[in-house]
């Protein structure tokens, strides 16, 4: 099947489930582990990731296909993507602070974290490797972000419940048990495999 004929909605759906950027590619782990202690901040970070990946994926698509490819500079993609992401998160930060201080305090404080989030860079690289069209790249950016947000919300929900209800051996407390849970969630996500394929 030619990937370019796949409907963007299918790509969006696959990016959340079968190709979840966190649970199948294990990208964006550091902030995933650090901010998943309570549901509220994980939702804030999740929303920020959705926002940034949805916006940067099409921009990076344009930069790659309209700037780097014509000049045969594909090898510069890493640098180009990173500066686009960095500049873009800064702009988003300014806009959010302008629009609402409340939103800034829930979302904006995470934006600097996202600049160095490898899930966002990974998302840009995948849409090049998988040769998505422009529309598909938007769907993929949105899907990858949503999948990441879903995964962190799931982990945060489980962790905050475990805090009250479960006894974890001291050696495994914190990041240790979070990684174990992540592994189990990832295995559960294997259940989606076979529904759609996008790579």
């Amino acid at each position: 099947m030619d990937i370019q004929t796949v409907h963007p909605f299918v790509i969006f759906f696959a990016a959340i489930t079968t190709n979840n950027i966190l649970l199948t590619n294990f990208l964006g782990m550091c902030s995933f582990l650090a901010v998943s202690k309570d549901l509220k901040s994980s939702l804030g970070l999740g929303a920020a990731v959705i926002f940034v990946s949805t916006c940067t994926a099409p921009i990076n698509w344009l930069v790659y296909h309209k700037l780097l490819v014509p000049y045969e500079l594909e090898y510069l993609q890493y640098i180009a993507f990173i500066i686009v992401i960095a500049a873009f998160t800064q702009i988003i930060e300014m806009v959010i602070e302008r629009v609402s201080t409340l939103l800034y305090l829930t979302l904006g404080i995470f934006l600097p974290l996202i600049t160095v989030n490898c899930a966002i860079l990974g998302c840009a690289l995948f849409l090049v490797i998988r040769q998505y069209t422009f529309m598909q790249s938007i769907a993929y950016g949105m899907g990858a972000g949503t999948g990441w947000a879903l995964a962190i919300a799931a982990l945060a929900g489980i962790r905050s419940r475990m805090e009250k209800k479960s006894k974890v051996i001291p050696e495994l407390e914190g990041a240790g048990i979070a990684l174990v849970i992540t592994g189990i969630i990832a295995m559960a996500f294997i259940g989606f495999s076979g529904i759609v394929r996008i790579n």
Binding site: L67, L73, I83, A87, Q90, M94, E97, R98
Partner: peptide, 22 residues
């Protein structure tokens, strides 16, 4: 040149955003 152009455009965008939003 291409990389400088890209950075230049982004800087310009940042400056414009700063002018309007900050």
């Amino acid at each position: 040149l291409v990389l400088s152009a890209l950075s230049g455009i982004l800087t310009l965008l940042l400056l414009i955003a700063e002018f309007f939003f900050a």
